[in-house]
Design a binder for these strands. Structure first.
Lengths: 111, 111
DNA sequence: CTTTTATATACCTACTTGGTTATATAACTA
DNA sequence: TAGTTATATAACCAAGTAGGTATATAAAAG
């Protein structure tokens, strides 16, 4: 994944309103008005959040008359996930090496 | 995980310099100077990035004389990872339901 | 004690962000 | 065609961010 794409994805995920929008979209496609309803926020604010999510590739939108139904897009989500898992794996590898080290140390100190 | 904690974690991950710092730290503990060296950026800038990573719980630091060795902290990384995986799972569940739907549709159309 | 080294803080600037209200566009409805 | 509904855009503002340079602090070396 391109660094700039990861920037956009993580930045998009860094806002609670946008994560809530994704949570809602995980339950299924919906419209902007329906999305905006539970938030104490103006419709333009939600439209802006959607634009951020769209630019990050986390959401895509169709056309149904005057509605612009939004749906979650798995690819970017998966790529951010991959990045995180990758570093978690490396860290865990370091951690287990530390474990081995501590184990060896213990053996030496209790012969 | 608290929403505010996720905010901080994802925001911290949304910067390429900070992700590069984590990449370096995944290889093992190191000092601020050593971290700053490969970047075309002032030392205070790196210190600021470290503060962001620390506030997000992604990095912690010890004390070794005048050095402040930094190490990666798995917990926050793991929690962000969990959040992402959770939504990926939900989305995949929706996707397989859509698969089932398309499968049913196909059967009906080719009797 | 003085100097050097490692790191942090203060202060400044340019840019971005998240929200607002007002308005535009575009598609239904009567 | 006129009015209403769904959504987007424009213009604005307050707050936050990423960078810079200069300086402070604190430990180490001499």
């Amino acid at each position: 994944m391109q660094p700039a794409a990861l920037d956009a994805t993580f930045a998009a995920l860094a806002d609670p309103t946008r994560r809530a929008i994704l949570a809602r979209l995980a339950l299924g496609e919906t419209t902007v008005m329906e999305l905006a309803e539970p938030f104490e926020m103006s419709q333009p604010a939600i439209s802006k959040h959607l634009k951020v999510l769209e630019r990050a590739g986390l959401v895509s939108r169709g056309r149904d008359g005057q509605r612009r139904p939004c749906r979650i897009e798995a690819k970017a989500l998966g790529e951010a996930n991959e990045w995180l898992e990758n570093y978690r794996r490396i860290w865990e590898a370091n951690f287990s090496r530390l474990d081995v080290l501590l184990e060896e140390l213990k053996k030496k100190n209790t012969p």
